[in-house]
């Protein structure tokens, strides 16, 4: 798309409109036109740029959540419960 067209879409986008598209923007689900419009808007609107940056950081942090350690006793009790199920199933055959 020509630069001028992206600029004209961007010039019409308000901060609030940018805000509504952010998840799709981060997930790569927006059209190229809208991506460019958002980038152009952010280039002229430092608070929106900072908002997007903190939004992306948040998502990266959530995605990096480590698994919670599984207590051995929980695993043992689970195995015991599943063994009972298996015995019942094998007896039924």
């Amino acid at each position: 798309m020509p630069d001028s067209k992206a600029k004209s879409i961007a010039s019409k986008m308000t901060c609030k409109e940018i805000f509504a598209f952010l998840s799709e923007y981060v997930d790569g689900e927006l059209s190229e036109e809208l991506c460019e419009a958002i980038q152009t808007h952010n280039g002229n609107c430092p608070p929106c740029q900072a908002f997007v940056d903190t939004f992306i950081t948040t998502i990266e942090l959530v995605k990096k959540q480590p698994a919670k350690p599984l207590p051995p006793a929980v695993k043992d009790e689970l195995n015991a419960a599943l063994n009972r199920c298996r015995e019942a199933l094998d007896q039924a055959r």
Partner: peptide, 13 residues
């Protein structure tokens, strides 16, 4: 998902 992420961002901010 969008609302959850926004909420998380706000809380972290």
């Amino acid at each position: 998902l969008h609302r959850a992420r926004l909420f998380a961002r706000k809380h972290l901010h």
